[in-house]
Design a binder for these strands. Structure first.
Length: 971
RNA sequence: GCCGAAGUGGCGGAAUGGUAGACGCGCUGGAUUCAAAAUCCAGUGUAGGCAACUACGUGUGGGUUCGAGUCCCACCUUCGGUACCA
């Protein structure tokens, strides 16, 4: 394009009414005036329309609308100090396109954004620098907002939420108190107020209460009445949905806090990668396990990917089996010491294999260990327990093939044949799962087999799988052998038979077990929601009155954990000891607290009297489309589904599930540039080179080395003449070749690409479309700026349909489009609409390119065509579309302009190109009139010269004709 | 181990069981230019051939089908999840 005068309007009003730049020559009347020179200048367009949209509150959404609702939600970000990189907006762009598309289709679209603003990094930063987390968080949020605004999202910012804002966490605390004040009725399968449980206790005691609880309770109404308030409180804690209990938790010394299961990966903390250990601590937990079954079965009702459902299903880990008790053989040992005869209770999914149970294993932490260990074995057991104690989680995970254990000296009795079964303890049995004890069947379980082999324990074959070749040990297939009354039965029948016998004998019950654990809800941190809980002198937990919410975080200037695994809040003594004899809870809530319900707050974000009004909740219902990364599969998504179900039980939300459809965007990876430097010791050192220094052939020009060395002293050791490889190109320029590695985009790896730079250089619309063009949104892919020119060129070509390439004069005219031109447009409408519906945004961009290329070849600048094209494009390139929309003479925003309607009539073809194949191999292509009958098509195909040639000496066996598609001749 | 997703040109990637490689990048040649950038035009899966054309081509090996990138079976590789869950 040739240089030409710039159109420098800086705002809508100025632009339309009295632009001084233009008013000298003419009063601006858009396309009617030919003198105006219009060059595609995305930066100016963006500035103007950003302001105009804000001034006109284009994206403000009303809760009061007769339009159907549609709720498009992004997972809100944690505002980190590093700012956004090009990977973050991928999902936001996809959801924004969809939101805009739905808006144009006439929906009232809720499309909000906010910040998950409590969290560890801000606090770590505060410990290091003394900057208050609130301050650094606010600065990070400001930065995020600035970056987001540049990309042209259609968020309704009047609904922004920040989880660290007291007006928000007031309601997080409120929901917590609701959880605290409820128990789960397993018969009615719903949460009920704790008062109703107390009423049951008063009337009939605990024996008949069907409730989810930590420890099964058994007491009469009279016993309940006799309890002290503290004792009652202890009992109720077993039932509350938010409860306090001493549990083995993941303790992370370096972070100074406990972590939830999903915050621990591979035996180290997910954040920071620090070691973690199992430690018994008194902690708040949420009884998510009460909802395990519903969380699993309701997966059928939502539109998540199968992979996602599977992941959640695995995490919940439902298994059916039997829980049964084994008597312990009286060896005249310590059994007399116990109040009742000790029994060992196990869980098994395979009760049918009981005759193959040649030993029992209980977890080292199991309560029975002390009781049943014989004097002869006590040293051995003590040694083993000491060994287990030295083992970190990491050790335990890294050598799962290695078995270890010790014999307690005690024996259990097989209830069916009275045989004595030795009882061992071993690491591989977990205290937390099932009953923490198993019957080991080495013949039918790989782990038990390894254990039996190592300790020379007997192995009794109990299933004959010979008639099922290829069946694995896990398959419930085969015929029972060596199993007394089960002999000859199929496994599935044997399971049923033995279950009945177990129940008849009263030694056990059918039982469903879940892998899912209750969620540890306490964190020994400062930067989180304070618990609205205070303890009286007896240590009974009391909820704060609702009127006192929010309980705000006290000011602190030292954020380090207090001594003895205490939260930093313990330092705020006046705050903690707020009232004589009372102490506030000093732990704070975990990161997932605020994010478990934020999507509800957006519906009515500024409500002071409720977390959201019932009117708003009933209008918006649930999230229609939720876009975010898979990494939240077992954390956030599970917790928020759980909270939502609880609120549903309370009648506070209208739907059982919060998210109808989940779209998981893939990660955009970075390409790291690695320089290999030989060290003096002869080793090779890998240095990450900032990507800004890397040329298109993935090399570092030697000429740039000094600059790099100034910026980054790691490179001072690099010497081109000694310790790195150097290549020369044709012109004799020297380069250091670099390795390329595709990995996570991260500051640490110097491979971060900043969206601001992309927007600055190519414009927001180009950036948006290029991110989409990169590939399927759900797929992980490396960022590569190279291809962006293609999209940039497309937008310019689009512009040139409106303005002359050489002199910038407007080209739009009112001529009647030809049939061919309509077809070009409507082909595009069809393809783009279909593809948006299936979230295939990359192919949408291709379709736009094809459309614009074809309109250009047709020299078409007809208003009727362009008007629709602009509307079609506006979800993808909102700035450019808005500008062109107004250039076409419209006064209102293109965001509200109706989405183009497909007219299939324009797509009807007069003639169809038919590929003609012989034996499935394409041999010719022939253009035939549409509407020919099958015999006519056959005849036409056979008459083709090329076909004649190929058919020479062959007999035609069959002709397959798919009208409108293809013709295949079989010879 | 187990569960899930995916393997297509130099690259990102297209293809309701029906013309494999759309669209874009890159590359090659040409136009324009003093020159370059930008832009425009043409070409571009591999091999053979001046060409028309021919053969081969979607991780590997089988199968179903008139026809397979697509469906079925087995295997290999990569990436994600999970990790002794009884």
């Amino acid at each position: 394009m040739k240089p030409r005068t710039r159109n420098c309007h800086s705002g809508f009003d100025e632009f339309f009414i009295s632009s001084q730049l233009f008013s000298k020559t003419c009063s601006y009347k858009r396309l009617n005036i030919n003198q105006i020179v219009m060059e595609y200048n995305p930066r100016e367009i963006e500035q103007n329309w950003k302001k105009w949209w804000a001034d006109h509150q284009v994206y403000k959404v009303s809760n009061d609308s007769t339009k159907p609702k549609y709720y498009v939600l992004d997972m809100f970000p944690y505002p980190s100090g590093a700012g956004l990189h090009v990977g973050h907006p991928l999902g936001y762009i996809g959801s924004d396109i969809f939101a805009r598309y739905k808006r144009q289709q006439g929906y009232n679209v809720l499309h909000p954004m906010g910040y998950d603003a409590f969290g560890l990094p801000a606090e770590q930063y505060a410990i290091q620098t003394g900057v208050h987390p609130a301050k650094s968080t606010a600065a990070n949020i400001a930065r995020y907002r600035e970056q987001l605004d540049k990309i042209g999202f259609s968020f309704d910012w009047s609904r922004e939420v920040q989880t660290s804002d007291p007006s928000y966490y007031k309601w997080t605390q409120w929901i917590f108190l609701q959880l605290f004040g409820h128990w789960y009725d397993t018969k009615a399968t719903k949460a009920r107020p704790i008062e109703e449980l107390i009423a049951i206790f008063e009337k009939e005691g605990a024996s008949n209460a069907k409730a989810a609880c930590s420890e099964p309770q058994d007491f009469s109404a009279a016993q309940w009445a006799a309890m002290t308030p503290k004792e009652k409180d202890d009992v109720l804690m077993n039932y509350r949905l938010a409860y306090r209990k001493t549990t083995y938790v993941w303790w992370c010394e370096d972070l100074g806090t406990v972590l939830a299961n999903d915050e621990v990966k591979d035996g180290v903390s997910e954040r920071g990668g620090y070691p973690v250990e199992r430690k018994p601590m008194l902690q708040w937990s949420l009884r998510i396990t009460a909802y395990a079954d519903r969380l699993l079965s309701d997966l059928d009702t939502v539109d998540f990917s199968d992979a996602m459902k599977k992941m959640q299903g695995n995490w919940i880990g439902k298994s059916q089996g039997a829980q049964m008790r084994f008597r312990i053989a009286d060896c005249g040992l310590r059994i007399g010491e116990a109040a009742q005869e000790p029994e060992i209770e196990i869980f098994t999914t395979r009760p049918d294999t009981i005759f193959g149970a040649t030993f029992m294993v209980i977890a080292p932490e199991h309560d029975l260990v002390k009781q049943i260990t014989t004097p002869a074995q006590s040293n051995e057991i003590a040694d083993y327990l000491a060994y287990v104690n030295t083992r970190s989680e990491r050790d335990r995970m890294s050598e799962t093939k290695e078995v270890s254990g010790a014999f307690t000296g005690a024996f259990a009795l097989n209830p069916f044949n009275g045989e004595k079964i030795p009882i061992w303890i071993a690491e591989y049995v977990l205290k937390d799962y099932g009953t923490g004890a198993i019957m080991a069947v080495p013949a039918d379980d790989e782990r038990d087999m390894r254990f039996a082999k190592k300790f020379n324990l007997p192995i009794v074959e109990i299933i004959d799988k010979s008639m099922y070749p290829g069946a694995t040990i896990e398959d419930k297939l085969g015929k029972m052998i060596n199993s007394d009354f089960l002999d000859g039965m199929e496994v599935m029948d044997a399971i049923e038979e033995i279950l009945q016998r177990i129940e008849t004998m009263g030694i056990g019950v059918r039982k469903i077990n879940f892998r899912l654990r209750d969620a540890i809800y306490s964190r020994q941190r400062y930067w989180g929601e304070p618990f609205p809980i205070a303890y009286d002198a007896d240590g009974v937990a009391h909820p704060l009155p609702i009127e006192e919410l929010p309980l705000e975080l006290p000011e602190l200037d030292d954020f380090k954990p207090a001594s003895g695994a205490k939260s930093p809040l313990a330092r705020a003594e006046n705050w903690v000891n707020f009232q004589e004899g009372w102490r506030r809870e000093t732990d704070t809530m975990p990161g997932f607290a605020g994010s478990s319900w934020y999507f509800l707050r957006y519906m009515d974000a500024n409500n002071d009297t409720d977390f959201a009004s019932q009117k708003a909740l009933n209008y918006w219902q649930d999230v229609d489309l939720y876009v975010g990364g898979t990494e939240h599969a077992v954390g956030h998504l599970m917790y928020s589904r759980f909270w939502h179900k609880f609120l549903y039980d309370k009648g506070l939300v209208p739907t059982k599930e919060p998210y109808k459809k989940l779209l998981n965007q893939g990660m955009i990876q970075g390409k790291s540039a690695i320089m290999e430097v030989k060290t003096e010791g002869g080793n090779v050192l890998e240095l990450y080179v900032p990507v800004s220094f890397v040329d298109e052939n993935w090399r570092l020009p030697i000429a740039d080395l000094p600059k790099l060395q100034v910026e980054d002293n790691r490179f001072e050791q690099v010497n081109p003449s000694t310790n790195v490889t150097v290549e020369k190109d044709k012109e004799g320029r020297e380069f250091i070749p670099l390795l390329m590695r595709v990995e996570k985009m991260s500051k640490r790896l110097f491979n971060v690409v900043n969206p601001d730079e992309m927007v600055e250089r190519y414009g927001a619309d180009c950036f948006r479309m290029y991110e989409m063009f990169l590939g399927p949104i759900e797929q992980a892919k490396p960022w590569d700026t190279k291809g962006i020119n293609g999209v940039s060129g497309f937008l310019r070509k689009l512009w040139m349909l409106f303005f002359d390439e050489n002199n910038g004069k407007p080209l739009v005219n009112d001529a009647e489009p030809t049939k061919e031109e309509w077809k070009i447009l409507h082909t595009c409408i069809k393809k783009v609409t279909d593809d948006i519906e299936r979230f295939s945004f990359n192919t949408c961009v291709s379709s736009f390119m094809i459309c614009v290329n074809e309109l250009r070849s047709a020299n078409c600048s007809k208003r009727a065509i362009l008007d629709e094209l602009v509307r079609l494009l506006s979800p993808f390139a909102p700035f450019t579309a808005e500008e062109l929309w107004h250039q076409l003479g419209h006064e209102t925003t293109v965001c509200e302009a109706p989405y183009p309607k497909l007219n299939e009539a324009y797509l009807v073809q007069d003639s169809i190109p038919y590929p003609v194949s012989i034996n499935g191999k394409k041999r010719d292509l022939v253009e035939l009139p549409a509407g020919l009958s099958v015999p006519e098509l056959e005849k036409a195909a056979l008459e083709l010269d090329k076909v004649q040639k190929w058919l020479e000496g062959q007999t035609v066996k069959k002709i397959i004709v798919v009208p409108g598609r293809m013709i295949n001749i079989v010879v």
